[in-house]
């Protein structure tokens, strides 16, 4: 059974004169490694935010983790990990890496509940998985962009999500870090949690079958399974006869 089931969805931002996503249908199964590609303004981030209930779906049906997204947005967000695209933490941000990673579980815990031993263990395990143990007691604002990125990924992995979505998670990372993280995401997918990755960097993709989704102008132009090595060429082809230089 699909863990994400979107059927003819439309989404629009308030004040927008046309929908950002138009009649999109997508099905994602447990354990899939989904790469979402396409030119800028294709609607990739909006798709992730729709799946997380942060952007309102105006038409169509959407079910995530067995819940009707249009009715249970907050419940869906408790089950879905989402690493957002742009964040900046100023040097005076008074939260340590350890605290930020633990915060990933706060929604899941529910109101009034305190972190338990299993919450602390999940946070510690996420920190270990991302290899940021030596940063645990540092305040997040004093870290480099790449270290902040890893912290935010750990924040979402600590949540033990049923779906993990990442929007440009490699933007601040060098090649080694990208390759390492691809391995982390592969291990997450292997445990049955689908990983949805929006990216413009395809080096170091894990050597597994990839569910590739290519978007253009709010629609899916390609939805199929391919090898990691084919991803970039298919995206180039499906993005409307070669990508403009600004797209990559």
């Amino acid at each position: 059974m699909s863990i994400i089931e979107l059927e003819g969805i439309y989404t629009a931002y308030e004040g927008g004169d046309k929908p950002v996503i138009r009649g999109l249908s997508l099905s994602v199964n447990p354990g899939e490694y989904v790469v979402i590609g396409g030119p800028n303004s294709a609607g990739k981030t909006t798709l992730l935010e729709s799946i997380n209930g942060l952007v309102r779906i105006t038409h169509g049906t959407a079910s995530v983790c067995g819940l009707d997204l249009r009715r249970y947005g907050n419940e869906v967000r408790r089950k879905v990990g989402y690493v957002i695209q742009n964040f900046y933490f100023d040097p005076f941000t008074p939260f340590t890496v350890e605290e930020v990673v633990m915060m990933g579980r706060y929604g899941k815990m529910g109101l009034l509940n305190r972190p338990t031993r299993s919450d602390r263990e999940a946070a510690t395990e996420a920190i270990r998985l991302l290899g940021i143990e030596d940063l645990a007691s540092k305040t997040i604002g004093t870290l480099s962009g790449g270290q902040q990125q890893k912290t935010m990924i750990a924040h979402n992995i600590a949540k033990e999500p049923e779906v993990l979505m990442l929007d440009e998670p490699f933007s601040n990372l060098d090649f080694n870090a990208r390759e390492y993280l691809q391995g982390v995401f592969k291990s997450v997918a292997k445990k049955g949690t689908p990983v949805l990755l929006v990216s413009h960097a395809f080096d170091g993709l894990p050597d597994i079958r990839i569910h590739l989704v290519v978007m253009n102008k709010g629609r899916i132009t390609y939805d199929g399974v391919c090898d990691a090595g084919e991803v970039e060429s298919i995206i180039r082809k499906e993005s409307g006869g070669g990508l403009r230089s600004s797209s990559f």
Binding site: R77, M103, K159
Partner: peptide, 13 residues
């Protein structure tokens, strides 16, 4: 206090 959008994306009310 950390980040409103990240808190909302985590399912915090």
């Amino acid at each position: 206090m950390f980040n409103m959008k990240i808190a909302e994306a985590s399912g915090v009310r």
